[in-house]
């Protein structure tokens, strides 16, 4: 089988004494959109920063197309790292305020020493194809509309010729009538350029609609992952179930099922012992407070880290036996 386009193995991200990401493994397959959901402080942005190289991994490894970055030469590492690009949440803030659009778009080519007339022409054509006319090239970021800035940021990312794009809350703050535009564009680009996405969002509707697979995070760990439709319809982890049920809906028939979790999200600096969710879990058992459940994967590609997974789904087969 071909290598996954991105593999994160037992990754740990630390800021001083705070462990934001605690031993997480992820796989992104070619052409796939992997959704990452969870609430603030769960570590999803830290994963994004670690994957794109803005934050070093304290432990664990990152591999692009089967090549481990740690083992590669410096030159090779730069090339591999450049294949992973980040789409920032705030597009205007991600553009240097004193540069024109022309300079901003040519920058990624110059960085790669690939600034030729041919490549530049390709960038301009790509920009044109997503509605950025040449008359915009002499503008500064603050003279662009939100939608235009978003497209400029997107072209810049594409000019680096990535195979993986990490999108951190790409639809945050967008009106619902234009949110679809962006998601449609992202999907078209993915199909056209053979990209894979890691999509981070707190918007469950967006993830549920565009992701092929989903991973749910809670306090620095993955509590559940699996194919989107199956996971949304039959969550196995009580946290996933509560999170999905908290999603506001227009459909009155689904409103009664809401599980309102008691208490606050614990601080990631002092996560509870045992299962990290046990302090808020409606189905907590004595075992949960002492023993941390391992993430086990079954043959359908679903994984859950819970001692007492919800019965709505078939039994879980421990990975140790399966592997």
């Amino acid at each position: 089988m071909a290598h996954p386009v991105l593999t994160l193995d037992n990754a740990v991200v630390r800021y001083d004494r705070l462990t934001a990401v605690d031993n997480i493994s992820l796989e992104l397959r070619r052409g796939e959109t992997l959704g990452l959901i969870g609430e603030s402080g769960c570590g999803k942005s830290s994963i994004a920063r670690a994957i794109v190289g803005l934050q070093p991994l304290a432990e664990g490894t990152l591999a692009v197309e089967g090549e481990t970055l740690k083992d590669a030469s410096r030159q090779r590492r730069l090339i591999l790292q450049r294949r992973i690009q980040l789409l920032f949440q705030d597009p205007v803030a991600s553009l240097s305020p004193r540069l024109t659009v022309r300079a901003l778009l040519s920058e990624p080519l110059k960085i790669r020493n690939a600034f030729t007339a041919e490549n530049w022409g390709r960038i301009v054509a790509l920009a044109e194809s997503i509605g950025l006319g040449e008359q915009l090239l002499s503008r500064y970021p603050h003279q662009l509309s939100g939608g235009q800035a978003r497209r400029v940021a997107l072209i810049r990312v594409l000019a680096a010729e990535p195979s993986i794009i990490v999108a951190d809350e790409p639809t945050a703050g967008l009106d619902i009538s234009v949110q679809g535009d962006l998601l449609n564009l992202l999907r078209a680009l993915k199909d056209h350029l053979g990209l894979s996405y890691l999509l981070i969002s707190h918007n469950l509707n967006v993830i549920g609609r565009v992701a092929d697979r989903v991973a749910v995070m809670y306090l620095g760990r993955i509590v559940e992952s699996g194919p989107t439709a199956a996971l949304f319809r039959g969550p196995a982890h009580p946290y996933t179930q509560a999170l999905l049920s908290a999603n506001l809906t227009l459909d009155p028939s689904r409103r009664h099922e809401r599980i309102v979790l008691s208490g606050e999200l614990p601080s990631p600096a002092h996560p509870p012992a045992g299962c990290r969710f046990h302090s808020r879990c409606p189905l907590v058992q004595p075992k949960c407070a002492t023993e941390a459940p391992a993430l086990r994967t079954d043959e359908d590609g679903r994984a859950v880290a819970c001692h007492f997974p919800l019965a709505a789904r078939p039994a879980v087969i421990p990975q140790a036996i399966a592997g």
Partner: peptide, 17 residues
């Protein structure tokens, strides 16, 4: 640490640039 500086780093820009 502003996003536009980080964006350049992710694009692979060397420090001098």
């Amino acid at each position: 640490n502003s996003p536009f500086i980080e964006a350049e780093k992710v694009l692979g820009a060397e420090t001098w640039r």
